[in-house]
Computed example of a mutant assay.
Amino acid sequence: MNTRRHFFHLVSAGGALLGGGLAWRAATAAAPAAETWRVSYSDAEWRKRLTSAQYAVLRQDGTERPYSSPLNKEHRAGTFACAGCAQPLFSSTTKFDSGTGWPSFWQPLDKAVSNQMDTGFGMVRTAVRCSQCGGHLGHVFDDGPKPTGLRYCMNGVAMSFAPAAS
Rank of each mutant, 00 (worst) to 15 (best):
Q60S: 06
E45G: 11
K111A: 14
A30K: 09
G21P: 08
G19H: 15
H139E: 07
S42H: 14
T100I: 13
D118R: 08
R4W: 09
P88N: 05
G19E: 12
A77N: 12
V113R: 06
A34S: 15
V11I: 07
L71D: 03
M1P: 06
F105H: 03
T148C: 02
K95E: 06
L58D: 05
L22T: 09
P108T: 07
M117A: 15
W24Y: 14
D97V: 07
P103T: 00
Q116L: 13
S131L: 07
T3G: 08
S92F: 08
K73T: 12
K48G: 10
S12Y: 05
A34L: 13
G14H: 13
G78A: 05
T94P: 04
Q87E: 11
S40W: 15
R5N: 10
H9C: 01
T100A: 10
V39W: 10
G122W: 13
G19N: 15
M159E: 03
L137R: 00
Y41I: 13
C85P: 05
F121Y: 15
L50M: 02
L58G: 02
F121C: 08
A112V: 06
D118V: 05
K95H: 04
G78R: 06
Y152A: 00
G21N: 10
A44R: 12
T51C: 04
T51L: 02
T126G: 06
G122K: 14
A53D: 11
G135V: 01
A165T: 11
Q132A: 14
T79C: 06
A83I: 01
H6T: 08
A86P: 00
S98L: 06
T3V: 12
W102K: 02
M123N: 11
A56N: 04
T93S: 12
A33H: 15
C85R: 05
L17F: 11
T79K: 02
W106Y: 12
R151D: 07
V57G: 00
M1W: 05
F96M: 06
A162D: 03
C130N: 03
H75M: 11
A53S: 09
S42Y: 12
T63C: 05
N155P: 03
A127P: 09
G135R: 01
G156K: 04
A30P: 12
